[in-house]
Design a protein around this nucleic acid. Structure first.
Length: 152
DNA sequence: GCCAACGTTGGC
DNA sequence: GCCAACGTTGGC
């Protein structure tokens, strides 16, 4: 029985939104090209919960909840020449990028906006409230996650 | 290994 | 459109 951990993953709603996930019910979280973000995905376990954060939109904030359902999947987009995530340096015998599969759990009734997150939490508690933070995948401490869950 | 230049993310 | 905060790249 592995422990349930909490994460936050960002996506621009123009590229992939909570509504798209709701329709598709599950998706590969591919296209991650940042080592720190990739390494966080490697630390995930099945059944971990993930807050879905809409970035680069107005207003930015947490819009729903997902669950990790599959791990360590080779990111197919790194070998797809037509994909914007194509990585010519990655070889099939030694793939650089992998990802997880997530499923939709719920869409929140109200967006938990970044300003609200800033009121609730400090930079140290919740990295997403840190100015200029660009990491698209972040761990969320359990006590912080509980507070967020109550607000969704 | 250092570091300057450049690129990207994403809030505002 | 601006800019802060990084990550990446490449010359040396």
């Amino acid at each position: 029985m592995t422990e349930i951990n909490y994460w936050l993953m960002k996506s621009e709603p123009d590229a992939y939104s909570i509504d798209t996930l709701k329709n598709e019910s599950e998706t590969l979280w591919d296209g991650i090209r940042n080592y720190q973000a990739r390494n966080f995905m490697r630390k995930m376990n099945k059944r971990d919960k993930v807050f879905f954060y809409h970035s680069n939109c107005k207003p930015p904030g947490i819009v729903g909840l997902m669950e990790v359902i599959d791990l360590n999947i080779v990111d197919p987009t790194q070998f797809d020449k037509d994909s914007k995530y194509f990585d010519p340096k990655s070889k099939p015998e030694n793939p650089k990028w992998d990802c997880v599969k997530v499923k939709f759990i719920s869409k929140s009734n109200k967006i938990l906006s970044l300003p609200e997150l800033k009121i609730l939490f400090s930079e140290d508690e919740l990295l997403v409230v840190k100015k200029g933070n660009r990491l698209s995948i972040l761990p969320v401490q359990k006590d912080i996650a509980k507070i967020i869950l109550e607000k969704l």
